[in-house]
Amino acid sequence: MTKPNTLLALNWKMNKTPTEAAAWATELKGQLPSSAATLAIMAPAIDLPALQTALAGSPVQYGAQDISANPSGAYTGEISAAMLLDVNAKYAVVGHSERREYHAETSQVVASKARAAMSTGLVPIICVGEGLEVRERGEHVAYTLDQLRESLAGITVASAEQIVIAYEPVWAIGTGKTATAADAEELCAAIRGALSGLLGEVGADVQVLYGGSVKGGNIAEICGQPNVNGALVGGAALEVGSVLEMVNALK
């Protein structure tokens, strides 16, 4: 198996105004070294037009933190795939742990959003992962793989090359517990095995990311694991300096 390319998906969450996003992107663009990793900014939807302008001519990609399962219509507050494509977005995060927790999104909803993204050519970054209670019961692998299968419902083998999976150890977010590179590899390897079972040879080429307190000091070890193909980065994505630190660590 040839290891897929490394992807750093920089999730800004609910941070940065369009003005701040443009300034950030311009600063990054002026300092970004050549890198084997692909950079993609997951920004608030209101920031995407600013990124389209600021990143013109840059290899840095961008996408949304969520997407509607519906193509258009009376769905106040939602953002459609067509709207994202109109500003040249490439990715859409679906099923982030915060969406699952704060907005009660089920894996069935996640699957419908992933299919909506794929139907227009967007690449969904499908997030899965277990909470602390599940981890402490030792059921983390089975739970995460069940979540994965449900979140991939309706996605065919023919279209599966157009997906990214991100494993988030929800149990290590705000609990004082720390996930190790070995923890990342354990679940990413299990996800890889499940993808191969569901999708055959295509499963070997799907990018599987790890998301959980990734920063310059640990990214090389984490992304050096056989089944980790990059990272979904949160806090360390907000400052250009920390992003450059991660990029240089991977070189």
Score class of each variant (00 low, 15 high):
M1Y: 09
K3Y: 08
N5M: 12
T6Q: 04
W12Y: 08
M14N: 15
T19P: 00
E20M: 02
A21N: 04
E27V: 02
P33C: 09
S35E: 04
A36T: 11
P44R: 02
L48S: 04
P49A: 10
Q52W: 01
A54L: 03
Q61M: 13
D66Q: 09
S72I: 03
M83N: 07
M83I: 01
D86L: 06
K90Q: 14
A92C: 13
H96R: 05
S97V: 13
E98Y: 07
R99V: 09
E101F: 05
Q108H: 05
V109D: 12
K113W: 11
K113Y: 06
M118Y: 06
M118S: 08
T120I: 03
L122N: 11
V123K: 08
P124N: 11
I125L: 14
E130M: 02
G131L: 10
L132P: 06
L132D: 07
E133A: 15
R135E: 10
E136H: 13
R137A: 14
G138L: 05
E139C: 04
L148I: 09
S151M: 01
E161Y: 02
I163H: 00
V164A: 02
E168D: 10
P169L: 12
E186W: 05
L187G: 03
A189S: 12
A194Q: 13
L195N: 05
S196C: 12
L198S: 12
L209S: 05
G212I: 04
G212D: 09
A220Q: 10
E221H: 06
I222L: 13
C223I: 11
Q225K: 15
N229R: 01
G230Y: 02
L232Q: 00
A237L: 10
E239K: 14
S242I: 00
N248S: 09
